[in-house]
Design a protein around this nucleic acid. Structure first.
Length: 561
RNA sequence: UGCCUCAUGGUGUAAUUGGCAACACGUCAGAUUCUGGCUCUGAAGAGUCUAGGUUCGAGCCCUAGUGAGGCAACCA
């Protein structure tokens, strides 16, 4: 039974499990997954892995995937996060149709199940303090001790738990615990907490409840209620699985979902934990959750990443149980791969150097043809104005060229892309020796598209000085200097922030056709990289973010020298 | 001195379930090129953590080690 129709995705252990379940007809041929974020922060690329995994499996096996908000802790959760999560999942290209749920949808049912467990003697109310509970739990190597309240009568437990629900007690006065085994080598089985009293306004249920279920209790039941077959989560929950199964067993539930754990994503040169990302935002190391240097979905979106590139990345990294670290180079590869096919080519000069073409008529200007995307002829052509004074990239001129430098230097010729071959005759400098402009002559016989066969080693980009428009361009680089900013536990990861992660250029010149760009528009600036119009860009002030530079083999050659 | 899990080129995943270790990224070289991009061609790079065992045959099965990660919120 080969249900996997997506040939881009290599086999993985989760698909093996599903294939096995399909063969044994464990779930009557059904495959139903879910993506269950807690709405307490913004989604990041690690979540994208999980989203692509869960929705991807549902798609490939003709199954379903739910979006479920795991909102059992009102102290940390907000609607703002719910909304951003919905937006991000949708943006990534996935559809939960009418299956958006909340753990809080099941508060009533969860409460009834808790009563059932109390009645069967499998749960009890403990009135110990939090500290006492902690002390009694033992350590990984020493077993715990039973609470004095462990043997309360069912009637008393019922009365107390009802009282907890009805608001008769202070926060922290009691908890409801599952009666399992205080000597278990698995700490999570030592009478885990099922409910705590917490007076906090829940973003959906308001003040209706003052007791809230814990994750370990709510999650298996929520999965079961929704008919989830494969409950996929990250490795740190592995040790919770016996508890997940315990609740389902003790509640006598049929068609039980199974929890499967995979390794979370670690990406080099960044951090992924919500707490650390929050720290970066709150302490002003970045401007916001969607700062283009953030590994959040919204940050990547603003940086210029496409949903397609992120999905392709998720497919390429695979799924396994061993934790490792993925090289950002792979992420960068997927966005280049995607944008290479689709992005309009355009000329932009980031650090302008004026070139005067001395033998070109003063008032003349020409309209030149430029190809929009050599990878896709259907994208057509555009017109580029040319005139006597142009700007080229400062990096494309050297007064004293190193070996293998094919660009402009005194006495050398280069082709101006889509225009003419020019020759550098003179370098104009200030008294201080600073180069202010270059004087060149052009060869009128070498106009692009005229069939002239004379060729030179280098081709450089340019814009016409009097036609070009100004723009601000933000060059982003990796946010940390260390591959794993958390590797050294004695060091604060914030000390490893790359001081040059943002280079702001506000004197850039871009071709005039770009006057009306809109936030989110994506381009390849020829020879430089992929750029995207920033969220805050306006007609009066155009702002571009560099998504990723082009691969640059010259930079490698130069570095070697 | 516990319990759970994991171990395959630099990185990340595969390996028809016991049959010549493959793919992608990265790296290097070359070809092509009006983008030092793309594309194309080729190369280097692991003999599968270690030691035993079973077998005609082991990355895969068994035993014992070693190393790494996780587990002691009224967080998820």
């Amino acid at each position: 039974m080969e249900e996997n129709t997506n040939t881009n995705v290599p086999s993985n252990f989760i698909r093996e499990i599903i294939n096995g379940d399909l063969e044994t007809n464990k779930y009557q041929g059904k495959v139903h997954t879910r993506f269950p974020p807690e709405p307490n922060g913004y989604l990041h690329i690690g979540h994208a892995k999980s989203i692509c995994l869960n929705f991807g499996i549902a798609r490939d096996y003709n199954g379903l995937c739910n979006l479920r908000f795991d909102d059992t802790n009102p102290a940390k959760e907000e609607v703002e996060y719910v909304e951003s999560i919905e937006e991000d999942v949708r943006w990534l290209g996935f559809d939960w149709e009418d299956r958006m749920f909340y753990a809080s949808d099941y508060f009533e049912k969860l409460y009834e199940f808790a009563i059932q467990l109390i009645k069967e003697g499998k749960a009890y109310v403990d009135s110990s303090t939090a500290d006492e509970t902690k002390d009694m739990r033992g350590t990984p190597t020493e077993s715990g001790k039973e609470s004095l309240n462990r043997n309360r009568s069912i009637e008393e437990n019922l009365k107390l738990f009802t009282g907890m629900k009805n608001g008769e007690f202070e926060d922290g006065a009691h908890i409801l615990r599952a009666k399992i085994d205080m000597t278990s080598p698995n700490m999570h089985m030592r009478d885990p907490v099922m409910y705590r009293i917490k007076r906090a306004t829940h973003h959906r249920t308001g003040d209706i409840w003052c007791i809230y279920p814990m994750y370990d209790y709510a999650h298996p039941i929520s999965d079961w209620i929704e008919g989830i077959t494969h409950s996929i989560c990250t490795l740190e929950f592995e040790i919770h699985r016996p508890l997940y199964d315990w609740f389902l067993t003790e509640l006598h539930l049929e068609n039980r979902p199974q929890q499967i754990e995979f390794a979370r994503l670690n990406l080099s040169y960044t951090v992924m934990s919500k707490r650390k990302l929050l720290e970066l935002v709150q302490e002003g190391y970045v401007t916001s959750w969607d700062d283009p240097r953030m590994p959040t979905i919204s940050g990547l979106r603003r940086r210029g990443y496409t949903p397609e590139s992120i999905r392709s990345f998720a497919d390429k990294i695979g799924v396994a149980k061993r934790d490792g670290m993925i090289d950002v180079a792979l992420l960068e590869h997927t966005i280049r791969e995607d944008l290479n096919k689709r992005a309009l080519r355009v000329m932009a000069v980031l650090k302008p150097l004026k070139v005067v073409i001395t033998n070109y008529p003063e008032d003349k200007s020409e309209d030149l043809d430029a190809i929009n995307n050599p990878e896709d002829p259907s994208m057509g052509k555009r017109i580029l104005p040319f005139s006597k004074e142009i700007y080229i990239e400062q990096d494309d001129f050297r007064e004293n060229p190193p070996k293998k430098f094919y660009r402009l230097y005194p006495g050398n010729e280069v082709r101006l892309r889509y225009a003419y071959i020019i020759k550098c005759n003179k370098v104009i400098k200030t008294d201080a020796g600073e180069i202010t402009e270059i004087h060149c002559t052009y060869d009128p016989e070498t106009k692009s598209g005229t069939g002239n066969t004379r060729s030179v080693k280098g081709t450089i980009h340019w814009v016409s000085a009097k036609h070009a428009i100004k723009a601000e361009i933000r060059l982003y680089d990796r946010f940390f200097v260390a591959e794993d900013p958390l590797a050294d536990k004695d060091k604060d990861f914030k000390d490893l922030i790359n001081p040059n992660s943002l280079e702001l250029l506000n004197n850039c010149r871009i071709e005039p056709g770009l006057t009306n760009v809109k936030p989110g528009d994506k381009f390849q600036f020829e020879r430089q990289g992929y750029f995207c119009v920033d969220l805050l860009s306006t007609e009066g002030k155009i702002i571009f973010n560099r998504t990723v530079p082009l691969r640059d083999s010259w930079a490698k050659i130069e570095k070697k020298q």
